[in-house]
Simulated scan of single mutants.
Amino acid sequence: MCGCADRETELLLEEEQEELSAQAEETADKEQEKDLASPEEAVTEKPSSVPAQPPEEIYVDVCGAVVQPGVYAMKSDSRVFQAIEAAGGFLPDAAGTSINQACALSDGQQIYVPTKEEAEKGMAGQPSGGAADPGTGGAVTEAAGTGETQDSGTVNLNTADSAALQTLPGIGEAKAQAILAYREEKGGFSGTEELMNVPGIKESTFSKIKDKIAVE
């Protein structure tokens, strides 16, 4: 009996030792895995890709010798030639080579395309992109004494010729001739608002140029 009891005790002790040994090995394995793991890998997550923002929309005023002068909405990364395309392209008498068509656009920019005659007279817009000087509102200022433009950059409706009138936003050759015909018929303008009496010139057109014209 004693022999059997001793054998049973030995088996229990062996099982207990094996269990303790297995627990120790498992603990050691976990510690080893923890030591091998990189701290950066544990906390660093792959940054999420941020989609590129689409170009913002800007507004530019295209006037002069183009098919459809006016204000156009363009993407902020657009160029001058794209604004001219949006305005229907050049008129046959446009001096397209006198402006930098590769220049980048900016919000509020005015692009004046001169005619070949104007370019020969030195009436082209500024070399940088063909954009008119914001301080002059886009009117071409000629030498003092011509009576076509004022020192402030405004156009005198009673003395300006067709070319000077076409420097105004929304005034093409046809509207310029209509202004000259009205002026000749009426003997001149008594005020700038009288311009709306000219056929083809509505309030929307007048509102764009009212700060760029004068009557003297």
Rank of each mutant, 00 (worst) to 15 (best):
S152P: 04
A95M: 02
D6S: 13
E194F: 03
S76Q: 09
G108I: 04
I213D: 02
Q150W: 01
E31W: 08
L157N: 04
G147Q: 06
A94F: 01
E41D: 14
A22K: 11
S106T: 15
D35I: 10
A37L: 14
T205Q: 11
P114T: 05
V67M: 05
I213L: 03
K34A: 14
E8V: 06
K34P: 01
G145P: 10
V113S: 08
K175Q: 14
D77I: 09
S48P: 03
K186H: 12
M196Q: 15
N100Q: 12
K175Y: 11
A139D: 03
A37P: 02
P47R: 08
G135Q: 11
E8R: 15
K75A: 11
I99K: 03
T146W: 11
G170N: 11
F189K: 06
C63E: 00
L36S: 08
A160N: 06
K212R: 15
N100I: 00
D6N: 13
A52Y: 04
E142C: 08
A95K: 04
I84C: 03
S21I: 04
V67R: 13
G64W: 03
V80R: 02
A124C: 09
G89R: 07
C4L: 09
Q150I: 00
S204A: 15
E57R: 15
E25Y: 02
D133P: 10
L180Y: 03
P114Y: 01
S78R: 08
F81N: 09
E142D: 03
D77V: 13
K186D: 01
S190P: 01
G191Y: 00
L105M: 03
A174M: 07
C4I: 09
S106H: 12
S207F: 06
V62C: 14
E184R: 12
C4H: 05
D161T: 06
D107R: 04
A104D: 07
G153K: 11
A5E: 10
E15L: 15
